[in-house]
């Protein structure tokens, strides 16, 4: 860390503050007038990169001998198609749900993979750009892992919730679904209606919140550990340097598993929740 070195606490807080449209950290827990520009930038660019890569493979897809790139994309498509077939028992729904799951998997994987970049690299570049533009680098916030932003992960899990509601209505009809809301899981007795309904609402809330929180929590914790490891290196002692190298290596290797696993889990839960919307209780 150059210049007037921040304290460890300042360093961590600086790294965990989003670049948003207000220019300073968000004050309230929920504020719909704020939008995180860094999250949107990385999420959108990586999302576009995702569909561009997939489109690149799809454009040249032939039934002949596939190239390596086509083969890896086909592998992914085949994997997602198999999972979707086993979980969502409606060929018509799968026409949208399976491609969505594929996009989600690749997209989240790539967003998570941003965690493997050196933790100070892009934030420092942004500080330079910000300072070159005349700003105070202490207020040049930048978080590069979009999935470590709760708004982003909950945004996606709310998307899954909307799909669940849509398919519930589509498959069971409005009356069928309302009937299910009040009679499942405990039974059709009128006294049980409120209990059933409460359970159903809790279930939807729990599914959606845990879906978004799980990804967020894993990536946020991973990012924080990278920041702490970087702090260890910043002590500029032999121990700190070795600790930074060794711990950073081990954590990064372990994190390869986590970013893949979390992307896979998010995709699988997307399929599972939508699959459940197709089945009666």
């Amino acid at each position: 860390m150059a210049g007037n070195a921040p304290t460890a606490s300042e360093y961590v807080v600086h790294h965990l503050t989003h670049l948003n449209n207000t220019g300073h950290a968000q004050k309230n827990i929920v504020d719909w007038s704020v939008i995180n520009l860094d999250t949107m930038f990385y999420s959108l660019s990586i999302g576009l990169l995702t569909v561009f890569l997939l489109w690149l493979a799809a454009r040249k897809a032939t039934s002949g001998v596939p190239g390596r790139f086509q083969a890896i994309v086909e592998l992914l498509v085949d994997m997602v198609a198999d999972q979707a077939k086993g979980i969502v028992h409606s060929a018509e729904s799968r026409r949208f749900v399976a491609p969505l799951a594929l996009t989600v998997f690749v997209w989240i994987f790539l967003m998570n993979a941003m965690d493997l970049l050196p933790v100070d690299l892009l934030p420092r570049v942004w500080e330079w750009i910000y300072a070159a533009g005349g700003g105070d680098p202490h207020h040049a916030y930048q978080r590069v892992v979009a999935t470590a932003d709760l708004s982003a992960t909950l945004g996606m899990s709310c998307g899954v919730l909307l799909l669940c509601l849509w398919y519930n209505v589509k498959i069971k009809g409005v009356s069928g679904w309302v009937h299910e809301l009040f009679t499942a899981p405990f039974g059709a007795h009128p006294l049980l209606w409120p209990v059933n309904f409460a359970m159903q609402i809790i279930e939807f809330l729990a599914k959606t919140i845990s879906h978004g929180m799980r990804l967020f929590g894993n990536m946020y914790a991973g990012e924080l550990i990278f920041i702490l490891i970087a702090l260890l290196g910043s002590t500029a002692t032999v121990f700190g340097f070795l600790g930074h190298v060794v711990a950073g290596t081990i954590w990064a290797i372990f994190h390869i598993l986590i970013i893949t696993l979390q992307a896979f889990i998010f995709m699988m839960l997307t399929l599972v929740y939508i699959g459940q919307a197709h089945e009666g209780h």
């Binding site: 309230n28 929920v30 504020d31 999420s43 708004s151 945004g155 709310c158």
Partner: peptide
Amino acid sequence: MNLNATLIAQL
């Protein structure tokens, strides 16, 4: 760990 309009945009 805040919620904001990013959620809608991401959705």
